[in-house]
């Protein structure tokens, strides 16, 4: 199967046979990929009917619900990994959601697009909101309401008791190590709750 470029990056951190919750799991491709490559026991959360059907057809466990309503149906620390793949920027209540990810999951894996990618910066300098292959929406029809740069997200984590264990920054599938906040398009973070001081 053709995996989205971040699938492999996510999979590298998922331990074999882990119990995984994928928030906003779409058509279930990531969970299916993780089942095939890591033998995980997975569940997805998804709101769109067509995606729920796609998951069921793939034999991927899916729970139809609105992520914005929180994860109250899930016990604390009941999953090894809770994944939020390219969904954060479309959510209303980011602080609550990240807190819930780290309540329910022993680890969180979060991937985000970089609003600070150099081409985006150029577009803003040119007087326009960025529109690109990865962010194909106009300002008025975008589902993405909370944009940040990698630097912003890392500051957010520091300020919200979130420990960043690892990060993998990519541009079109290749790793980026030089000036990642400028040249990276997508970041994958492995997070856990920071022990209280």
């Amino acid at each position: 199967m053709i995996a989205r470029s971040d699938f492999a990056a996510i999979a590298q951190w998922v331990t074999p046979n882990a119990k995984v919750l994928d928030l906003g799991c779409g058509d279930g491709s990531l969970l299916k990929y993780l089942a095939e490559t890591r033998n995980i026991r997975g569940y997805g959360i998804e709101i769109a009917d067509a995606n729920v059907l796609a998951c069921v057809e793939k034999n991927v466990n899916v729970i139809q619900m609105d992520l914005e309503a929180g994860l109250s149906g899930f016990e604390s620390q009941s999953f090894d990994f809770v994944i939020l793949s390219q969904t954060l920027q479309a959510m209303h209540h980011i602080e609550q959601l990240v807190a819930e990810i780290l309540r329910v999951g022993k680890h969180g894996i979060v991937t985000i697009p970089n609003f600070g990618y150099w081409r985006h910066r150029l577009q803003v300098l040119g007087g326009h909101m960025p529109v690109s292959k990865d962010l194909p929406y106009q300002w008025y029809d975008t589902p993405n309401i909370h944009f940040c740069t990698f630097a912003d997200f890392e500051t957010f984590c520091r300020d919200h008791g979130v420990q960043m264990l690892e990060r993998h920054i990519m541009c079109d599938g290749a790793s980026v190590t030089v000036l990642p906040n400028l040249f990276g398009k997508l970041a994958v973070y492995r997070l856990e709750r920071r022990a209280p001081d």
């Binding site: 119990k19 026991r41 569940y43 009917d49 729920v52 998951c55 069921v56 991927v60 466990n61 899916v62 729970i63 139809q64 619900m65 149906g73 899930f74 016990e75 009941s78």
Partner: peptide
């Protein structure tokens, strides 16, 4: 669904509009 998740059962849940 919650009780099934607590028991690690394979479960899918759909809420039909």
């Amino acid at each position: 669904v919650k009780a099934l998740l607590d028991n690690d059962r394979r479960v899918s849940y759909a809420e039909i509009t």
